[in-house]
């Protein structure tokens, strides 16, 4: 009798502890969610007034940004286009390199090479963006000036090159995971039917992992569009319409470069730019989740 009640007591205690722990985890989880909510609400609240004052069409499609002028104009089309072109350029260069690297790493590389390359990729992911920017500023920008014989190397091209290197780790890591998750039976079947190893990788493994690879690319897009420090140091920061050798300003750098000295409507407009950027990121995240979900369903 005594023993039984002790047991019951123990079980009750365990339950209590478990509930408590459950509560702690719930609170921690909710903290994250509330951070996101807080940022979203704050951005919307502080981003809307300027858009209202400037007018949505004038804001999104205006071609001149002169925030401190006597008659200021707040058109962010140059920033939007620059961000899109810059990201597209980075994807154009970064995806083929990243894709081939991940196929090699996941399927072909001998273990030793694979280990070294994997740690190199991790290291690349860990380099702070200001270091990318510094190297870009001191090596890449003068290099572009000499190679292309232009008066100044700080340009969209410099930003694209830096970004395409910066997105490599995200593309490679997610793609390698997707490729390694392809069931071995698929490849064995292909090989058994007489296909060569390369044919198998590109015709069987890659198509089965295509959702994962797409997710990797979208992740790269998200990284590229959100980068500010490195880009700010090599792109020149003038609010021109984008051109490969033009000095350009991205959505991120538009916010970062003027925030410290801004006041009034200019400051509000910077929040509005941040809001636009936030919407872009949300769109990209939704796309990412879509591909990730498809990959999961495809493999079940």
């Amino acid at each position: 009798m005594n023993k039984r009640s002790k047991n019951a007591n123990n079980i009750n205690k365990k339950k209590l502890v478990e509930t408590a722990i459950h509560g702690v985890f719930l609170i921690l989880g909710l903290t994250t969610v509330s951070c996101v909510l807080l940022i979203t609400v704050y951005l919307v609240i502080s981003g809307i007034p300027a858009i209202k004052e400037i007018g949505l069409v004038n804001f999104l499609f205006g071609k001149t940004w002169a925030s401190t002028a006597e008659n200021p104009s707040f058109g962010i089309l140059p920033f939007i286009l620059t961000s899109i072109y810059g990201t597209a350029g980075a994807i154009l260069i970064g995806v083929p390199v990243g894709f081939m690297t991940s196929v090699y790493l996941a399927k072909m590389a001998p273990t030793k090479v694979k280990n070294i390359m994997n740690s190199a990729v991790s290291l690349l992911a860990g380099i702070p963006s200001v270091v990318y920017g510094l190297v870009g500023m001191l090596v890449l920008v003068p290099g572009i000036r000499r190679i292309f014989n232009v008066p100044d190397g700080a340009s969209l091209l410099a930003a694209i090159i830096i970004l395409s290197i910066m997105i490599l780790p995200s593309i490679i890591k997610v793609s390698v995971n997707a490729l390694e998750a392809v069931p071995k039976e698929y490849e064995d079947a292909s090989l058994a039917l007489g296909a060569t190893a390369e044919e198998t990788y590109f015709r069987v493994s890659v198509p089965s992992a295509k959702s994962g690879i797409a997710a990797a690319i979208v992740l790269g897009v998200g990284r590229a569009i959100g980068e500010s420090m490195a880009v700010m140091m090599v792109s020149g920061n003038v609010a021109n319409m984008p051109g490969l050798f033009e000095s350009v300003r991205f959505l991120t750098t538009a916010v970062a470069s003027e925030m410290s000295y801004s006041a009034g409507l200019q400051r509000q407009a910077l929040f509005s730019i941040a809001l636009v950027l936030f919407l872009f990121i949300m769109l990209i995240n939704a796309t990412f989740n879509f591909f990730l979900k498809r990959e999961k369903e495809g493999l079940v």
Partner: peptide, 27 residues
């Protein structure tokens, strides 16, 4: 960059406010 005190000072003294054709605006 726009809003910088140095830029403001330089442009107002050289009477080039808002018409500078910058190649790079650094922070």
């Amino acid at each position: 960059e726009a809003g910088s005190g140095t830029r403001d000072g330089f442009e107002s003294i050289t009477s080039t406010e808002e018409i500078c054709a910058y190649r790079q605006e650094l922070t």
